[in-house]
Write a protein that binds this DNA or RNA. Sequence first.
DNA 1: ATGATTTTTTAACATAGGTAAAAAAAGATT
DNA 2: AATCTTTTTTTACCTATGTTAAAAAATCAT
Lengths: 187, 187
Amino acid sequence: MTEFLEQINKYNQLTKEAEKDFLSRLKTKSFKKGEFINKEGQICKQLYFIEKGLVKQYYHHKDRLFVLRFFSENTIFTVLDSFINQMPADFLTVALEDTNLIYIDYDNVQELSKIDHSFETFLRKIFSNAALYNLKRIKEMFNNDATELYVSFAKNNPHLLQRISLGDIASYIGISQVTLSRIRAKK
Amino acid sequence: MTEFLEQINKYNQLTKEAEKDFLSRLKTKSFKKGEFINKEGQICKQLYFIEKGLVKQYYHHKDRLFVLRFFSENTIFTVLDSFINQMPADFLTVALEDTNLIYIDYDNVQELSKIDHSFETFLRKIFSNAALYNLKRIKEMFNNDATELYVSFAKNNPHLLQRISLGDIASYIGISQVTLSRIRAKK
DNA sequence: ATGATTTTTTAACATAGGTAAAAAAAGATT
DNA sequence: AATCTTTTTTTACCTATGTTAAAAAATCAT
C-alpha cells in the first residue's frame, strides 16, 4: 500500500498524521485481463493506484471507439468526469492485462481533503496535472497528422508499444487501424 | 474587485479572513483591442478575472493558428501551462475587445494557498474544472466532423458568435476558414 | 460618402484518411 | 502438429477537408 502513498508524496508531501490516516483508508482489488473497472453510466467512487497491470479508458461514438488514455504501473487514475462531480461516467475502463489496484473511496477523499490541508494540496496538484495532460493532448491533436501522432506516441510510450495492440493505439491517436497500418508500412 | 471574489465563492466559499486577505492582494489592468496580455516564451505570473471584454488564447504551428479558448466577462483564466509550473508559455493571449482585468500575482496565490485551506480548495476546484473542460474538448475533437463542431460551438457559445470572427472560430474548431465558410454555405 | 482595409465567400485542385472486404500473420487451444 | 481465433496488412474506392487564389461583401476610418 505504501507505493500509493509514495506516489502521492511526489505530488505533495503529506503530514505524518495525514499519511497514517490515508493508509488506514486504503483497499485493494484485482482484475483479470478483460474485466471492467467501470462501465459508462456508473458513478466512479474511487481514486485508484495501479500496483501492477495496464488499463484502457475509452468510450464509443457512432460505432467507433476512442481511447482517452492508458494507465500503467505506479499511476494514480480515476474516471475524471465521473469522480469529480459524482455523475454517471461517459467512459469505460477495462483491464488490458491482469491488474492489481489499490484505491480509496470518494467519501474518504472528501473527508481527508476537508480535515487535512496537505492532502487538499495533493489533490490540487494532481488535478492541475490532469488539466495540463489534457491540454497537451489537445495541442497534439491539433498540430499533427496521423503519422506524427503515431511517431509521438511511440516516442512517449516506448514501454507501452509492445503491450498495446495496434487497434488500441489507433483508437488513442484517433485514426482507423487501417490508417495506422498504412503508416507503418511506408517505413 | 468583489466580482472576482464572488466568482471564487461560486467554486468554494472562502472564510471571512481569506476573503479580506484575498481582496487586499488584487490589482487591475486594462488592455486595448489588439494588445497582448501575454506572449509565448513569457512566464505567466498572474491569475486573471475578466471584468469586461474578450480575449483569445492561441498558438502557432506550421503556419497555422490554433485557438485554445476564448474567455469573456466574469471568467477566471490564466495561461495554464505557464502559470502552474512557472515555465515559459506556449501560448499567446490577446484582447479581441477593450478588456479590463482584475488579477492576483502568482506569489500571492502561492501564499494564500499555503495559509488558507479554503483558498486551496478553491484552487483544487478551478483546476479540476480546467481538466474537465479540456477533457470535453478532446472528446469533441474526436467525435465530430467540422460541421458538427461548428454547430456545437454555436450552440454552446451563442453570445460569442457575434463577437468573434469566422476565422477565429475556425481556428478554435481546428479547421480552415474556407471549410467553415463552406459549412455555413450549405445551410 | 469614399476609399481603404478586413472579412467572408467561391472555385479548382490535391491529398489524407475513412470504409469494407479479403489475405496474411500471429497467438491460443485442443 | 492442427485447428481456431485474433490481429495486422493490403487493396480499391470514396469523401471531407486542406491549399491557393481571387472575387465579393462587409466594416472601418478619414
